[in-house]
Amino acid sequence: MNYSIAFKTILKKEILRFTRIWPQTLLPPAVTTALYFLIFGKLIGDRVGEVHGESYMDFIVPGIILMSVISHSYSNVVASFYSTKFQRHIEELLVAPVPDSVILAGYVCGGIARGVLVGCVVAAISTLFTHIPVKHWEIALAIFILTATLFSLAGFINAVFADSFDDISIIPNFVLTPLSYLGGVFYSVNMLPGIWRQIAQINPILYMINAFRFGLIGVSDVEIGLAFAMTLGFIVLLAIISLILLHRGTGVKN
């Protein structure tokens, strides 16, 4: 049995899905982030001054890119897999001899593809406002892909448990967006007073954003090794949970 063909089929379907509806999936992040760069980076940022010795615009670019990767990799998988459940064409996969790991890999790689593509679009928009030096490209690339992987897996688990379209918007709106904003996209955690700095340290997104910032402009509030260990640890944990859910047929089988 050639499982690579099944994997490529799922991935192709996923990529065609989000590219076919590009005005909903690729255009909005370009417009939104252009406004971020213009308002926060240019108009307000010029009055903020430097953070970690970098201009405010340069400081916020990595966080905004990674925030887009997080939200789009997550929303791609959660929307696509839930819609597959909702329309019941998940049954096409369940009746076929496709292993659970291949189903998971197909959907997660679809999420990574969208996260990476949106990240590249946002990075391209940022070049209209500033020059990104890319100090450690291998670190930036690795955390970029790992973050997309982690949030694709999280989106998959959300979709497995979702019973309605409301269920797929709760986590992005009430968990991911606040954690991203509070994850040091627009500020350094060193700017936070006492207890708030301690609280910020338990936000995993803070580590990913800082690792990516280190990769691009060479500054970070956190230990890079810890950021990678945490991200990889969460990926392994969520992948195991996803496979257990698929094996049990949670949300997809009676």
Binding site: I5, A6, K8, T9, T84
Partner: peptide
């Protein structure tokens, strides 16, 4: 239970892919 936004041909063609047919 097929994807109602897909073309008729792709509904069948993708299913062949799930079965590992080149």
């Amino acid at each position: 239970n097929f994807n109602q936004f897909e073309t008729v041909k792709n509904v069948v063609f993708y299913q062949a892919g799930f079965y590992g047919i080149p």
